[in-house]
Design a protein around this nucleic acid. Structure first.
Lengths: 336, 336
DNA sequence: CTGAAAGCGCTTACAG
DNA sequence: CTGAAAGCGCTTACAG
């Protein structure tokens, strides 16, 4: 049960724990420990398979080598894939990840933040919920680095890594228009968060640039909290009540999935009766018949950028916020 | 930066840290602290928003309230969904989850185990890789509870939560036979791990019970390490070389996904030219046209059982291993 | 070149 | 009814 400690090594080597600590932390040279002693300690340590107790170290140094990851929903393909990339990257630096899902619920997010705080994580990666701006501001005062992902608060100066949501939707909408679609609906989430706002703006800008008048009836906003069944019912209702709709853009992957479900149950032929694009890629979109055009986010790049940014901040905090905006990719398939 | 500590409260209340600790740990009655002092301390603690330093507590008590989760691939829908359920459940008990993916690579798994160990997790949830049996045995001697998931080692006595893989495949194969399919192929993973063996056995048993001779040429085993492209190439090759194949069973979700991709690129009509079933459910299977029949695992039940089992063992270790086998569900759709 | 000692923030056996 | 003290396993400023 008992692990072996620095003391055990010290005893066996006939030196003090101090010396052992110096050697094991690579400070032998700096502290001018003799090569002889140094090697002896190293040897004993590996023989005993010594593993430093991270708790003790953390208590003393204030560093836990742990990062807190708060996402909207770890079961969602986008966040899960990102979590994988980030875990891999963090591992290279010796960091582990503690995760939690907010369900886009601010109270849950606050709870997670609290837990991560008293678990002394070294840094935070956060997909913020609507009213989390105050908490983010507060967190910044603790001196622990915070990197926002997927979205951010325009009025809060912070590090973030996001995708160019405006451009993604703009390109998607323009593509639809070029394909001859004219009455293009958009199904999105009732949310004034920046990523949704940008997606909405991209849609409107594309319409405008192609001189297609914007119609309010073509926009359907749904609350995030709905379950799949209700999403589907709502989407079906929307699709059937708007006259002359010839294409639809789904602003998130789960809306796209529910959208396909809706279209299927209506018996509408995707790509024929109606053009379809979704934000985010997914196996379902790729392999659906017909395959669904989408705005794909560069997941590996996002994950790597987040971790790199966080590690940089952990080593030497920069004075100005680093804000990274990556380009999404329009993948054209059969549905448009 | 500095958090507030038990000492700060003690000072403000004019008592010793000991007393504060007693009160805050609900031992006021037991230690017969006066109501007056007790209340005063409570009040100060909430006013100061005191959060115990988990590191210090962990160092002292040896409990970190953290569990280590090792899965095959956190980006895989099955594991991601399970991770979500387990996170939620664990949270109810005040536990957080540290995760890692093995990619079914034993060396990676060993590395993860090591990291989790010196991070002093209280318990482990492990999806073991092939040769991890020694490590599991070793882990058991440390007295920390270990729950295996998705698979286990028949020769190692341990707690586990799995699905009845044999029955799942048996039912699926029987269903195919009842639908009139006779030349049923199976695409699985080159692995002698129990979950794959059981799935294979279920297939063979169903054939036998329906007096259909087993043919070795109908079995295709692929190494886990392949990427999607190679999986697809191999599956296409298999499908086209076996003469008269009229149905195929894919033994995992990613094989099913690649299978659909293969069938698509061959232009074969699923459900007409060939019957298809996959293990695990997935949005793609549900919404594909035609929808794909599958053997679905009860993810919420699996997750809850795992956490409950672990919590039980954390509170009072049982002498005999608890082994839970849940029933999978055959969801019949259009592909068969 | 090396070590004794303090301290990180808790918990708990012991004493009164 | 309450407190002084030890100790969990480290790191590090200080001393020699």
């Amino acid at each position: 049960m008992k692990g072996i400690s620095i003391k055990d090594i010290a005893k066996q080597a006939g030196v003090s724990p101090t010396t052992v600590s110096f050697v094991l932390n690579g400070k032998a040279k700096e502290k001018r420990i003799s090569d002889q002693v140094s090697k002896k300690i190293q040897k004993i340590a590996t023989r005993l398979k010594y593993k430093p107790n991270q708790l003790a170290r953390g208590l003393r140094t204030g560093k836990t080598k742990t990062i807190g990851l708060i996402v909207e929903d770890i079961a969602n393909n986008f966040f899960a894939s990102l979590a994988k990339v980030m875990e891999d990257e963090a591992d290279k630096y010796g960091y582990k990840v503690l995760y939690g899902s907010t369900e886009d619920n601010t109270e849950k997010a606050k709870g997670l933040l609290e837990v991560l705080k008293y678990r002394q994580v070294d840094g935070y990666i956060i997909t913020p919920t609507k009213n989390l701006d105050k908490e983010i501001e507060l967190l910044k005062t603790t001196g622990k680095p915070v990197v926002l992902m997927d979205r951010y608060f325009p009025h809060v100066s912070s590090h973030y890594v996001v995708v160019d949501n405006f451009q993604g939707t703009y390109d998607a909408t323009s593509h639809l228009i070029q394909q001859g679609y004219r009455k293009i609906g958009i199904v999105t989430i009732t949310s004034d968060q920046i990523q949704m706002k940008d997606r909405m703006d991209g849609y409107m800008a594309a319409l405008k640039d192609h001189r297609i008048p914007f119609q309010k009836t073509l926009v359907k906003k749904l609350p995030f909290e709905l379950d799949r069944e209700h999403f589907t019912t709502e989407i079906k209702h929307f699709l059937t009540t708007v006259k002359g709709l010839d294409a639809v853009f789904f602003a998130t992957n789960y809306l796209g999935i529910c959208g396909i479900e809706s279209l299927r149950s209506l018996g509408w032929q995707i790509g024929k009766k109606i053009g379809v694009i979704s934000f985010d890629d997914h196996d379902l979109f790729r392999l659906h018949s017909p395959a669904i055009t989408c705005v794909a986010q560069p997941i590996p790049a996002i994950g790597k950028n987040i971790i790199n940014l966080l590690m940089q901040e952990l080593n030497q905090p920069s004075t100005s916020p680093q804000q990274i905006v990556l380009a999404p990719e329009l993948i054209i398939r059969e549905s448009t």
